[in-house]
Design a binder for these strands. Structure first.
Lengths: 347, 347
DNA sequence: ATGAAAGCGCTAACAG
DNA sequence: CTGTTAGCGCTTTCAT
């Protein structure tokens, strides 16, 4: 692969504008205190030469990289069929773009990848990391902590004490579950089942807890473990139908598994919502709106969470903000976003 | 955001190992010609100090970045609900990871983003770019060409002469369409409709051409324009049903729009495949397998295409390869991958 | 085979 | 306000 063509340097711009390198640097970085006449000359020279700063050179001295890593501890097949991942990325990308920070994507497939990712993060090549989809026994947090990389987690961390010691953004999973169950109960349903997510993730555990809060007398046969996938939802629904043919409502831990449930219910000849009411979680539009019947669900602001995570990570980053801050607009280290019930046809 | 903690430098390693910086550099970069005794000392020092090379410093002198940009000219809402994007990314990520090259993700939402992306690419911050989802009038290729960034496109470029002047990886869209149509004809169908993709993308045009090749006498009322989305597929199917209630087969340009068609057919009381046979394109597993009925489709190797693109871009990249190459293992600049029909229930 | 020295392009004191 | 100067950490001739 050929190298990029050599580009004009600060030096060249300085020569052309008849000023020193330092002045050009100031103008390029938008520092105040350069006479407008000179600044204009510099800008013209930049324009004419098509000058673009060399990031490597800049990083070398500033020790900043204007790049953050997004780490997705990809839970197997889940990334597919569930646009969750894409939505998060979109939110993050928007925020980073606005601040002219690059997004370095680190996908992890297997266990060996942990070491690689850890090494990269520890290498100090990015200004921070955004980490998702952590599982309970994941070694990554330890590695990250050791490396001292500023990090914001997507979803409350599950390890002991984790939630108090790190920064994260989450939605109110437990409260959202309450909204779902309350709605179902309000509909007059009495035999409420729950299809969980993978129980090594806090989001799934919290939703289960929320369900239990309001259905304390639910027998274990009313809870079936899923994994946030369609197939998992189907499997769980079959189990549920098998164990409790009289079930009249299902709260699924996400929309994708809810559509799996819908499918099985239809196959089993149950009408939704007449025979069985179904509520999902996420409000993943293409899934929830297109389900048959369309899905009543608990909405969480996924794209917004992505943006927020990026904003939190970059707080105090950048020249302009640095100046503006200082006062004490620190902002919280942990944010839990509210959820909202979205009514459609399934419940 | 705090700066990354200061890490040991080459200098520190050299001091510890009692050698010069140059020697450490050689060992770290795996260059031959260092006595094993010394090399061992250096490696131990590296280990003990936890030394990780500073990429910025390295880039500054080598003018390489060990990073490539992935540009997704995101066609609106399509990225959602269609795991296409995630699969490509996965393939690319695998290949890059294996070569220790970072993936910088550039998502584009609106037109303004073109300028930003162009500027970034032109800035020479990455060693190359992988570009997807280009539309016919996209200014990006021009910008890229001007910037001289090595690039591999995903899908044959559509502009005049583009296909002969740039590197790309594509699947045999036209041949795939032939497979679909032939299958439908083999089933005894006579009134074959086609739901297209967005016709400003070559993949969609090629599939349409393939359809026309084998159904030359198809009236325009048998072709409805879609956009690769579920909603688009539904819209197109309704139109088709309206114009030709006697249609007995549909070839949809991708699986997602095929499932839209399936949904409309079901609503209209048509049985699939008895009344209307349906064939999709992609073999996007979660979509095709879970459709009702499951989708007969034309399979393309999406993840493989991603890997191939990355491999093509990085050909001759890296110290080791540089040495091994030279002979002339150039490899082709344009690859068109074969497709295969996958039979399921819908046709 | 190894070391010394010269930058890569940029920013950040420090002078003036 | 502007210019001068000294590196940031690394690779790479060029000597030895």
């Amino acid at each position: 692969m050929p190298e990029a063509a050599s580009r004009p340097t600060l030096e060249a711009v300085a020569a052309r504008a008849g000023v020193s390198r330092a002045t050009v640097s100031r103008v390029v970085n938008g520092e105040a205190g350069v006479r407008e006449a000179l600044a204009a000359k510099v800008r013209r020279a930049v324009q004419e030469l098509g000058y673009v700063p060399n990031r490597a050179a800049r990083s070398l001295v500033t020790r900043r990289h204007d790049a953050v890593a997004v780490v997705i501890a990809e839970p197997e097949t889940r990334v597919f069929g569930d646009p969750f991942f894409a939505l998060q990325l979109r939110g993050i990308s928007k925020e980073l773009t606005a601040r002219d920070v690059q997004l370095v994507l680190l996908l992890m497939e297997g266990r060996d990848d942990h070491e690689r990712v850890g090494r990269y993060l520890a290498g100090g090549h990015v200004d921070g990391a955004l980490v998702f989809s952590l599982h309970l026994d994941d070694p990554l947090p330890g590695i990250i902590h050791g490396a001292g990389v500023p990090t914001v987690f997507g979803g409350r961390p599950g390890w002991a004490g984790g939630a108090d010691s790190v920064r994260y953004v989450d939605c109110d999973n437990r409260g959202g579950a309450h909204q779902a169950v309350r709605h179902l109960v309000g509909l007059g349903r009495r035999r409420l089942a729950h299809i969980t997510g993978p129980l090594d993730q806090t989001s799934a555990v919290d939703r289960l807890d929320g369900y239990r809060d309001l259905v304390p007398d639910a027998g274990p046969e009313l809870v079936a473990e899923g994994d946030f996938t369609l197939a998992g939802g189907e499997r769980a629904m079959r189990l549920l139908l098998d164990r409790r043919p009289d079930v009249d409502a299902v709260f699924a831990a996400n929309d994708v598994s809810a559509s799996g449930a819908l499918r099985v219910l239809r196959e089993a000849g149950r009408r939704v919502p007449q025979d069985v009411a179904v509520v999902g979680f996420d409000d993943m539009l293409p899934v929830a709106e297109q389900a048959e019947p369309s899905l009543t669900t608990v909405r969480q602001e996924i794209e917004g969470m992505g943006r927020l995570m990026a904003a939190m990570l970059l707080r105090g980053h950048g020249r302009v903000q640095d100046a503006a801050a200082g006062a004490g607009e620190a902002g919280p280290d942990r944010v839990v976003l509210p959820t909202a019930l979205v009514r459609r046809e399934s419940a």
